[in-house]
């Protein structure tokens, strides 16, 4: 009655480790794409909210700009350029953080953790998906700013690219920190996924030079890489070209931030395994 054993057709060595990693990352990205496409309210993140933001800040910019003074015209440009670039952080951060939160909300964490999926592959997968969301979300803003307010984001030049890359890295760093908190403290920490952004927003001088902040807050602002990135952005808006000093400080700061966040996440993951926190999600 017993059938003769057959050799498993699936050999762990059939693909190279790199090919398997890439396959897993794409699988994770596709899994989150299904969530996005099949949850219409999630599409708001990349369509409605960016549009609402561009309308809000664009209208504010149009109103401020009507006074005709040079500072008002500058402020108008700062508002629109600031909100478009702010969404680079927002989209990259939210996509990654809610990627992990989605697994906790649906009690899917154990399903994933028993597979060969490595932590770095999971992060790579959600980051890959986050890039797609980022392109859509920021694309909606750029088009909205042009269509409604004749604001040509691309006219700021290629200097936008390094600034956007720095802000992307900052978004990833914040999301790794939030993920660490969720692993350690459970879904109660999820409020931080959104809240931490709104701490950063005023301190980074997204829409104004940081000298407009209360004096006591200015040293804190200067310690943030985002502050330097947005200072470089204002230099572009003012047609002073790329401020490579500010971009460099921002780049170094964002890498330090990313390194610290990774260290924190690894420590929290170790605590998660040590203390058996997986039972929160089974």
């Amino acid at each position: 009655m017993t059938n003769p054993p057959i050799a498993p057709t699936i050999s762990p060595d059939a693909m190279t480790a790199r090919a398997k990693s890439w396959l897993r990352m794409r699988a994770i990205a596709r899994r989150h794409a299904y969530v996005l496409v099949r949850s219409p309210h999630r599409l708001f993140d990349v369509s409605l909210w960016p549009l609402v933001d561009v309308l809000l800040f664009g209208s504010l910019a149009a109103f401020v700009g009507t006074s005709g003074s040079t500072p008002a015209a500058k402020a108008s440009g700062y508002l629109l350029a600031g909100i478009v670039l702010w969404h680079v952080i927002y989209q990259s951060q939210i996509a990654m953080s809610t990627g992990l939160l989605e697994e906790t909300w649906t009690r899917n964490l154990l399903n994933l953790m028993v597979t060969p999926l490595r932590e770095v592959e999971y992060l790579g997968g959600v980051a890959l998906f986050g890039m797609i969301k980022l392109v859509i979300g920021v694309g909606v803003m750029v088009i909205g700013a042009f269509a409604f307010f004749s604001f040509h984001t691309w006219s700021l030049g290629v200097g936008l690219i390094p600034i956007a890359v720095v802000l992307l890295v900052v978004g990833w760093a914040i999301s790794l920190f939030v993920m660490g908190l969720v692993l350690r403290f459970g879904t109660g920490a999820e409020a931080l996924a959104w809240g931490v952004m709104f701490v950063l927003l005023p301190l980074s001088g997204v829409f104004y030079p940081t000298k407009a902040l209360p004096t006591v807050m200015q040293p804190v602002a200067l310690a943030l890489p985002t502050t330097h990135a947005f200072t470089a952005l204002r230099s572009l808006v003012d047609r002073h070209g790329t401020d490579w000093t500010q971009v460099s400080i921002a780049a170094i700061g964002s890498l330090v931030m990313l390194g610290l966040s990774m260290w924190f996440l690894v420590a929290m993951l170790r605590a998660f395994r040590k203390r058996g926190y997986i039972t929160r999600y089974t």
Binding site: P12, R24, N111, T115
Partner: peptide
């Protein structure tokens, strides 16, 4: 089918 495909790929099955 999508679910099974996802997990198969996590196990390295293209």
């Amino acid at each position: 089918r999508e679910y099974l495909r996802l997990y198969a790929q996590l196990y390295g099955i293209a």
